[in-house]
Write a protein that binds this DNA or RNA. Structure first.
Lengths: 361, 361
DNA sequence: GCACGTGCTGAAATCGCATTCATCCGCACG
DNA sequence: CGTGCGGATGAATGCGATTTCAGCACGTGC
């Protein structure tokens, strides 16, 4: 039924070896035969059996992506970018949803890692030691692992410029006259939340009279923002930076419900620029991050890296290197791509009100 | 380096054949040996080589899902359900984004179909003949194809109860006193849009004095809704049904921008109940469809179906069977699952205003 | 006591392809 | 004219599992 390499060889009057070469190592066979074989293969509709090829070459032609939640707009956008780039390079993509559970993430990497040529992992909260264990023990030597939106010594990664995004947001608010700024953080242990807190501290140090209030940690979801909204109102800040857009949207909603006007009374800034950010009113001022590019870069890193370099156990490189975008090809350190971000100003931020503080009520 | 079946066999003092059986057909080997082999395999950390197994069994252990847009909340939710169910059944999932291009969809099905045990395709706009060609010619005989949100004679499918959702929405609006109702449709050729139009006609026929206005076809996106919003305002309807939530959200936004109050002047109903439907204000009244269940059902259909039944060329079964949920196991017809839907009333619908018509302006 | 089924086991074939190794041919060079 | 070398080809091997097929031991029925 199905046409095999032997069939092609027979039809072309050559040996299977020659047929194989004509198709996958064309320069090893004489031009005349080569084209004959290719022609015959085309006519017969020959499709190489991936399993057989994989068995002998050890390459599957598949990559895999593990994310905490496929349905979140953030990861969906990343996944889309990963998928597109993978396909462009001839890879198929296995996708796994870890349901926000780091343990499941590890298990999935283990299972899928055995049947792919490389793994892209986005795990904001997996512990560093677990990360090490994954890349060292559970993944085969020649299956590279790339981290998305998370840096960890010894592993290639692609991250967004958290510090710069926060800085742009803070400057924007400062220029609008805001001096009391709140930060509604993400989950405890989230890598990017830690980064953004550093960035916030750094950015505010450079500005006069700015007082930053830490509003605490919240689930990065609309519901978390609702809770955060009350703290915003009670804190007396005139502007709030949210760890991500969903959180900001929740804050927006809660403030409105409480009669606090945005941006007249309080300005709100999100992070990520998910599609919903433009659907609400006032439209959300936020830090736009090119998520699809993030995904594409991860794939590129994977294929460039080839077999992953043996992970060093130093976690030092985690330091905040706000160097301008692009590769940093430190000698021994694995490649890490920094994706630039950009503040987009919409309607949720405005000049600070004179009366400044907002009483709870 | 890597431990193979021979290693297990040797360590357990049995032949590879017995080792194989002990692990994948346990009842064929004596209890004592069976447990010995399993024990040894566990200790050695044996992991069967998928390629080798696939080569001989022909089964890959993978399924694949092809959708028009991974980033759309609709398909993302379906994908999440598919992924979860696939994993629960021991399958890995290949995901492909067809970028809204039916040609690419077909190509992806062709490419991926060769390396999976089954294909789930969600293609609102692929032509029926192309669908036939895919399942008949490009897919192997034993690779079943399941359609999501699309029915086509000869292929198993899982669809949502479009007619019932529309009916519920229309009744809701009718009960609120609306008599002039607009429909903002999806893209021309979209299967579910056709279904919803039938449902709309059917539902309105049963009600006195209801006048339905077809506002036309729109891209099922926020931007499409913005355009539709103007038509809504100009049409003089007191309520509008949108083909999906994004469209409804766009309409909401445009109406607000034009000073038309929702729901005081015009009521708006969406379809799908995507997360963003609750993020806007007024929160969107919409038809909630259990998208994850849709995805799970598709996987179940795939595995139950096993090798796909030879597709009959009759496209008759496409008729609108609004039978109550569950399987319809017609004799020769392939199984089709109908997923029930439910109207959720939020803030975007209200009683029809007395003055009824809305002037443009 | 003999034949025959039954239950386990191992040797060997197989899946489809890539690749090593040996062969052969022709050509250039000494 | 002989030697050697490089290019093109085919035969054979192996990747790692599953799966016949045959064989062996053991009961059981007659």
């Amino acid at each position: 039924m199905v046409v095999t390499l032997r069939d092609v060889a027979r039809a072309a009057g050559v040996s299977p070896a020659t047929a194989s070469r004509a198709l996958s190592a064309p320069d090893l066979v004489a031009p005349a035969r080569r084209e004959l074989v290719q022609q015959v293969a085309r006519e017969l509709g020959y499709r190489p059996n991936r399993a057989a090829r994989e068995l002998i070459t050890g390459r599957t032609g598949n990559l895999c992506l593990v994310v905490p939640d496929l349905e979140s707009p953030f990861f969906a956008a990343v996944a889309k970018g990963v998928q597109a780039r993978a396909r462009a390079l001839g890879f198929a993509l296995l996708v796994a949803d870890a349901e926000e559970d780091p343990r499941l993430e590890a298990e999935l990497v283990g299972h899928l890692g055995a049947q792919v040529d490389g793994v892209i992992l986005s795990s904001p909260r997996m512990s560093d030691v677990e990360l090490d264990r994954l890349s060292r023990d559970v993944l085969d030597e020649d299956v590279p692992l790339v981290l998305v939106n998370r840096r960890h010594g010894g592993l290639p990664s692609v991250v967004i410029d958290n510090a710069d995004g926060i800085r742009q947001a803070v400057r924007h608010l400062y220029a609008l006259g805001h001096r009391r700024i709140g930060y509604a953080g993400g989950p405890v242990g989230s890598w990017s939340d830690t980064q953004r807190r550093y960035g916030l501290e750094h950015a505010s140090h450079g500005l006069r009279n700015v007082e930053v209030t830490d509003l605490g940690h919240f689930p990065p979801l609309f519901g978390g923002g609702v809770a955060a909204g009350d703290l915003v109102a009670a804190s007396g800040v005139t502007a709030v930076l949210a760890h991500n857009d969903l959180l900001a949207l929740g804050i927006l909603s809660r403030l409105r419900a409480r009669g606090v006007r945005v941006p007249e009374d309080v300005s709100v800034v999100g992070y990520d620029d998910i599609p919903a950010a433009t659907l609400v009113s006032p439209a959300l001022t936020t830090v736009t991050v090119p998520l699809a590019r993030l995904g594409r870069a991860a794939v590129d890193l994977l294929v460039e890296a080839g077999p992953v370099p043996t992970p060093t156990e130093s976690a030092l490189a985690t330091a905040l290197s706000a160097a301008d975008g692009g590769l940093d090809a430190g000698s021994g350190t694995p490649p890490s791509v920094l994706i630039g971000v950009e503040l987009v100003v919409r309607a949720s931020t405005g000049v600070a009100s004179a009366q400044a503080s907002v009483a709870d009520g």
